[in-house]
Amino acid sequence: MASSPGGLTIADRVIEKTASQILKGLPGVGGAKSGLFGFGSNADLDSRPSVDVTLSGRSCTLEVELGLAYPSPITEATESVRRRLSADVEALTGVSVRQVDVDVKWLKPNASGTGRSVRNLQ
C-alpha cells in the first residue's frame, strides 16, 4: 500500500476499536474487563468486550473475550457474533476477517432490558 501515492494505512488498533464497538452494539453480549479475580464487578452486559487483532497481509484474525447473557444458547450466540463481526469489520475497514476466536469469560442473566436491577434494601 505504501507504494501507491496517497495510500491508506489502517493500524491494528483501529480494527480492534471498531470490532469492540460493533460487539458493544450487539444485544446479549458484554465485555470482559477482568477485575481482580478474572471477572467480577466489571463484567456486565454494558461494558465493551476486548478484541485482539492479528494482521497478516490484507486479512486478519480476531481474538475476542466477551460475556453472554444466560441462558442464551452459547453456540448460536457466538456464531452470530462471529458472522456480524466478520461482515461489519470488513465493511467498515476493508480488511477481510479470516477467523474469529471467541473466549466466553462469563455468563450472566440479562439484567438490562427485562427491568431487573439489584436494589440494596439495607
Binding site: P71, I74, T78, V104, L107, K108
Partner: peptide
C-alpha cells in the same frame, strides 16, 4: 469447544464459567 466450524474460528468456554452461571441460577 462450541463452534460450528473451526475454520471460521473457535469458541471456548471453560467449565468454571458455566458452573458459575449455574450457581447463580
Amino acid at each position: 469447544r462450541m463452534q460450528e466450524d473451526a475454520r471460521s474460528g473457535v469458541t471456548t468456554v471453560t467449565a468454571n464459567v458455566i458452573a458459575a452461571a449455574v450457581e447463580d441460577d
